[in-house]
Simulated scan of single mutants.
Amino acid sequence: MRGARNAMTHFPIFQDSLRLNTFKKGELPLFITHYPVRSSYPNHHHEFVEISLVTEGQGTEIVNGAEHRLKPGSICLLLPYHLHALKLDEGKPLHKFCCMFDMNVLFQSDFAEVGRWLVKLSDDTAPFYDLPAGPFEALRSVLFALEAEYGSESPGKAGFMRIKLLEAIYLYFRNHPGFAAFDPPAASRPGEWDIVKYVNTHFLDESISLEEVAARFGVSVFAVRGAFKRLLGKNFLEYLHLLRVRRATSLLTATDMSVAEIAYDVGFSSLRSFTRVFKEATGVSATDYRKRHNER
C-alpha cells in the first residue's frame, strides 16, 4: 500500500498533451507543435517520451535538478522518469518544437539500437546538449516536415511520421557528445525488446516482478533474466532498481516529498527496502543525497 501523503507536500505536476486512449486504431500516438513559450512552467513529468528543440530565444531548462542554458539549437530528449521545468529570461519568449510520443514506437525489432540507446540515457549521460549549426538546421527541417505531416490527411500519414520521428531520434543520438558511450546493440531474440519496453513503462508498479513479467510474456524466468543480461548487461532486479533509483533521485532534488513518500511513489513496498537499495546504488542515504544536492 502506498504511504499516506502530507497535504502540504509539493509534488511534481503530471502533465500530458496526449494520452493513449485519445488515439484511434491505426493512428500513431504522437503530438508535435512549434510554438512560442511565453511563461515559465513548473516541475512536471509525462507518461510519454518528449523531444524538444529550441529555435529562437533563450532560457533555462532544469531536468532532474540539473540546469542547462537554452539557445537556438538546444535539444533535449526526456524519458518518463525525467522531471523538468523551464525558466524564461524576463520578458523574452522562447520558440521551440515539442514532440511527444509513446515510447512503444521506438521499441521495434528493426530499430533495436534505438531502444538500447534510450535505456542507456542516465544521470551520467545528459539528456540535453547544443547542436552545431549544420545538425541544427537538419533536425529543424525534419521536425518542420513532421509537424506538417501531423496536420495533414495525406495517404500513408502514420508511416511517414514514423520515418521522420526516427530520423529525428537518430540525429539526436548521432550528434550527442556522449554517443561513443552508447554501445552497439547486442543481438536480440524475438520478443525480448517487448519485455525491456514493458519494464521501462511499468517500473513504478509495486507488483512488478521477475515472475510476473515472465508469466505476462509466456516465457520462463530464465529467458527474462537472459534477455536483460544480454541486452543491457544487468540482471532483471538490477535494472528495475536502476530505474526506480533514477526516479527517486529526481524526486529528491526537484520536490520536497519526504523520503518515505518517494519510496512508495517509485514502487517499493517498504521504506526499509528502498533505503537499502538506494544506498547500494548511490553510496549515500537518500537524506544525504538530498542534502548534498541542496548544498551545491
Rank of each mutant, 00 (worst) to 15 (best):
D194H: 04
I195V: 13
I195D: 02
I195H: 00
V196T: 05
V196Q: 05
V199P: 01
T201A: 11
T201L: 13
H202F: 04
H202A: 10
H202W: 04
F203A: 09
L204M: 10
S207M: 12
L210S: 03
L210K: 03
E211F: 03
E211C: 02
E211G: 03
V213H: 02
V213M: 04
A214D: 02
A214I: 02
A214Y: 00
A214T: 00
A215E: 10
A215F: 03
A215D: 11
A215G: 08
R216F: 03
G218N: 09
S220D: 12
S220E: 09
V221G: 02
V221F: 01
F222Y: 12
F222G: 14
F222E: 15
V224F: 01
R225D: 13
G226S: 15
F228K: 09
F228M: 08
R230K: 15
L231Y: 07
L231V: 10
L232C: 08
L232I: 12
K234G: 01
K234D: 06
K234I: 03
K234T: 08
N235G: 07
F236C: 05
L237Q: 08
L237I: 00
E238D: 13
Y239P: 02
H241D: 13
H241N: 08
H241A: 04
L242N: 11
L242C: 05
L243H: 00
L243K: 06
L243V: 00
L243F: 01
R244H: 04
R244K: 11
V245D: 06
A248M: 06
T249S: 12
T249K: 09
S250F: 11
S250M: 09
S250Y: 14
L251N: 06
L251D: 09
L251A: 12
L251P: 07
L252F: 12
A254Y: 03
A254Q: 12
M257S: 07
V259W: 09
V259P: 06
V259G: 08
A260H: 10
A260G: 12
I262E: 10
D265V: 02
D265P: 01
V266I: 05
G267Y: 01
G267K: 00
S269R: 14
S269L: 12
S269G: 15
